[in-house]
Nucleic acid binder design. Structure first.
Lengths: 361, 361
DNA sequence: CCCTTTTCTGGAAACGTTTCCATGATGTTC
DNA sequence: GAACATCATGGAAACGTTTCCAGAAAAGGG
């Protein structure tokens, strides 16, 4: 009541403004709605004079074609669903940025949601995307289970980015854009071994399912290839939270005071390693070398700056979006796209201290 | 042609699967579409038996109501538009996370896009949101101009978050959720002055429009209130990019070797200050104290850990989303919501070095 | 057992587009 | 100048929902 009764002196009629539709424009311009549609969708032919008039009228009426009406008819919404575990994680954020960039260049828009690593939430989000009839889905799966495959079946292109579900059922049936994590870990491991390190701690992801995680595998393989025995006691695992990472790092580094280097499989364990080293009064890199995966902003700000394996997060997002939007996704299995990583050497790794050096300190 | 001719042995009919509609369900369940609609929308009354049957059939057919059809009829899409300058900026990312959290709890979804500080892009995004008929818009405006106000006029709730356009035309007509930047800056300034600092550098934002920026004003006001003369030469400005921030910081700190503290108005200038101090071989905090606005992850990782003013980014996003979704936004002017900041004291600020100390070094 | 109320149900009309089709008006070609 | 191709245009039928309305069935009251 309040609103309706009060509509008097508003400057430009605006109260509960119902958006102007194609009919209004047609009426005002004295043409049929089909003509207005043709003007705005660019299809068909319209005489220059008519086009002018329609555009003018549309401008006056502040007409904007409704994507809802259009989508209903054309069966394309122009939207892409994007689900990542956590938008405030720098890696995820960069992936999102890449997707946005590509989506924009393709004229698509993006529905974003965060899974927070919760399978239930993941399923809800997938449901919502389906209901919204997105044209494609890009997902960074967080866990083992996989609520996403439904899309493939309904003909909506689905692309994994940055990670694939760890359940075996996946088997490359869904296209994916990944960083070459194995190569990244290998390069870091080789670098550390090259500096003389033999007792290298590894801070990895938990392995809830059967397969122990790509990076952990890669770490073992790299050491083995270099003839360095793998000490299982030096492999620690943590969930992707600050607390869990810190606990794992602290546990490992206190238990094994003899290790000379730590390789963190992500920026969270990397951060934890730095903090624990500081807590334990270890000088980096004199007492302990630290390297991590993910070359994020603070790597350069830490003191000393951290040696890191860069994953091309932005490109991952961009490429994934291309696949999802183009629908190229559906052509054959094709296997995952692997993007190269790069070892960025900074000051956090040094030669392995000899036993005497360590004892003296 | 290829596709149509080849549809033979697919396992479960899936080829170019047209989504099942309410009609299919109605037909298969032997009821009218109105009944199916009632079952799914929860409105009206349906006998238990019928509901069962409909749900069963819908399950078999993997039916999902189309949000497009629904939106057309109900004139609500359930979507919120969110535009931020850069998703990979930690502050923005946190705001986005807050919005997502709130949106989820309200059953809305989020269309995200990045403006990159480009007014043209901002306008395009606003256009797209309008076309998509979002139910509300949340914008972190980047510049002076303001492509957003159009929404207010069309009855779509619009809320600014984190920042308001610097053009004067704004005048509080649009609701906003902001951090109390002035108070934040003041607390940091008071803290530094309390430590004995008198020559404090300020790294701020550029002032392209008339008003010089809230934080810069607050800085001046705080110093004045404490009886410290403001030296205009100590106020440097930069655009919100790494390069610009670095240049500004380097310029200021080289030009004025006598300054004893730097207050950075954001994490980018903060980062720049840390790097320049390192470059110039200044010990923090012995030679130079550094404090910044934005308590982001690396503040704790820097060495020494950085004293920072925390802005409740996540809450900003959450509150803004509430306003935008609830439409509470439209009730009166109400002025911006100000959320409190907090000074997090860490190790990067110390007592001002006496002149002798500095000379000796 | 009839009348009234309540509960269920289906038909049909929107909602704002696109697009097929038919029609009339122009141009073009010999 | 007749036959024909081309262009410009409007009417109408989708697209997948919700929701009003009216009718049918069930329930309740005397």
């Amino acid at each position: 009541m309040g609103r309706a009764g009060h509509a008097g002196p508003g400057p430009a009629g605006e109260r509960d403004a119902v958006a102007t539709t194609i009919k209004d424009v047609a009426a005002a311009a004295g043409v049929g709605i089909a003509t207005v549609s043709r003007v705005f969708s660019g299809t068909g032919s319209v005489s220059a004079a008519t086009r002018e008039r329609v555009l003018a009228v549309a401008g006056d009426l502040d007409y904007r074609p409704s994507a809802v009406g259009r989508s209903l008819k054309t069966r394309r919404t122009g939207g892409l669903g994007l689900a990542v575990p956590d938008v405030s994680d720098p890696f995820c954020a960069e992936v999102v940025a890449g997707v946005l960039e590509c989506a924009r260049s393709l004229g698509q828009h993006v529905l974003l949601d965060a899974t927070l690593g919760d399978p239930a939430r993941e399923a809800e989000i997938a449901d919502r995307f389906a209901e919204q009839r997105v044209d494609g889905v890009i997902a960074m799966p967080s866990g083992v289970a996989d609520p996403w495959t439904g899309f493939g079946r309904t003909g909506v292109p689905l692309v994994y980015v940055g990670r694939v579900p760890s359940c075996r059922s996946w088997a490359g049936k869904v296209p994916a854009v990944l960083a070459d994590d194995a190569a990244g870990i290998r390069s870091a491991a080789e670098y550390l071994v090259g500096l003389g390190h033999r007792r290298i701690g590894f801070l990895g992801a938990p392995a809830p399912g059967t397969p122990p995680d790509v990076r952990e595998d890669a770490f073992r393989a790299a050491l083995a290839a270099l003839g360095v025995p793998v000490d299982e006691d030096l492999v620690a695992r943590a969930r992707p939270t600050r607390d869990s990472a810190y606990a794992a790092a602290a546990g490992l580094m206190q238990r094994r005071a003899d290790l000379t280097a730590v390789l963190a499989s992500g920026h969270l364990p990397g951060e934890a390693a730095v903090l624990v080293a500081r807590e334990l009064d270890l000088r980096v890199p004199a007492d302990l070398s630290i390297a991590m995966v993910d070359d994020i902003a603070w790597a350069e700000l830490a003191d000393p700056p951290l040696t890191a394996v860069n994953r091309p997060a932005r490109d991952l997002g961009y490429r994934a979006c291309e696949l999802a939007a183009r629908g190229t996704a559906r052509r054959g299995p094709a296997g995952p796209v692997l993007l190269p990583t790069e070892l960025i050497v900074r000051g956090s790794c040094g030669p392995a201290p000899s036993r005497r050096d360590r004892a003296r300190h």
